[in-house]
Design a protein around this nucleic acid. Structure first.
Ligand SMILES: [Mn+2]
Ligand SMILES: [Mn+2]
Ligand SMILES: [Zn+2]
Ligand SMILES: [Zn+2]
Lengths: 142, 142
DNA sequence: TCAATAGTTTAGAATTATTATAATGTAGAT
DNA sequence: ATCTACATTATAATAATTCTAAACTATTGA
């Protein structure tokens, strides 16, 4: 889903009816410059801030999963105690800030091509993703 | 924790009392050739198969987390709906078989050195890990 | 235009994974 | 043998997610 506001069309294209709630969720998720990484909690908070009527939790879950199934969102596993979703659905690499628990996308040029020498017979590679964990550098250097 | 059976000593070394349950869990986890990747459920099943007396679920959780804190286990996030633990506690890469939901360790030579060009000011890199998702190759080739 | 219908929303219940609690048990020390 | 710190246990509590079933609504097409 791109930056333009034709969410009604976009939703219809994949067979999702463009209801008020879905369009509002699209606006919150996709009307932004950068890709957006969020937890369900983040999203519920954002939605309730930016809307008069609240969207029920069940609808948020249903819609997030509908978007995921249609390829508009991707689930990312970083911290087994939290589910992250990503508006960037391509296979890509991440930095994860262990202080703020924030995810940051890498683009192609940030990490050199990964060369894999191992191969598992009968299996094909679906994706190769790198996770770089970073944290604050301001230790008291001895 | 290594291959030898001195689990009593090993446990004492880090200040964990070598109780019957802990020693049994060590045997199940560390008496094996390869590193072991498991979910809490896997472990509970294994323990109940290989023991006369059952270990309570609370003890399994407590002990896994104690081992994690002491650096004997590492938690791995692959699938946000499941917690994996790993007896290989070093930073290392994985293949994940999406058919069987099995994790496979890579060793140094399997993946060439990762070169990272991006750098985030004020942050240092704690780890760089690659996840390669694989799946069965036997499609009906058109 | 308007009823039919397929799909959507909702609150709340149910389920699952995990963590907390508090009483009881026990390993290791003396 | 006794003491004490720590471990174990059953159970309760919590949190995240999914299910359910009833009410609602957007779209279709008569
Ligand atoms: Mn955990
Ligand atoms: Mn999910
Ligand atoms: Zn991303
Ligand atoms: Zn591993």
């Amino acid at each position: 889903m791109s930056k333009n506001c034709n969410f009604i069309e976009k939703l219809r294209e994949v067979g999702l009816r463009p209801t008020k709630q879905r369009v509002k969720m699209c606006e919150v998720l996709y009307n932004r410059e950068k890709t957006f990484h969020f937890t369900i909690n983040d999203l519920v908070k954002l939605l309730s801030e930016k809307m008069n009527e609240k969207i029920s939790l069940a609808t948020v879950y249903n819609t997030v999963h509908a978007f995921e199934k249609k390829g508009y969102l991707k689930e990312i596993s970083i911290d087994s105690h939290k589910s992250y979703f990503d508006t960037n659905t391509s296979a890509h690499h991440h930095f994860f800030d262990e202080d703020t628990h924030e995810l940051i996308d890498c683009d192609e040029s940030d990490i050199e091509k990964i060369n894999i020498r191992k191969n598992i017979t009968g299996k094909k590679i679906n994706s190769v993703e790198v996770l770089v964990r970073v944290a604050s550098d301001n230790q008291t250097h001895k």
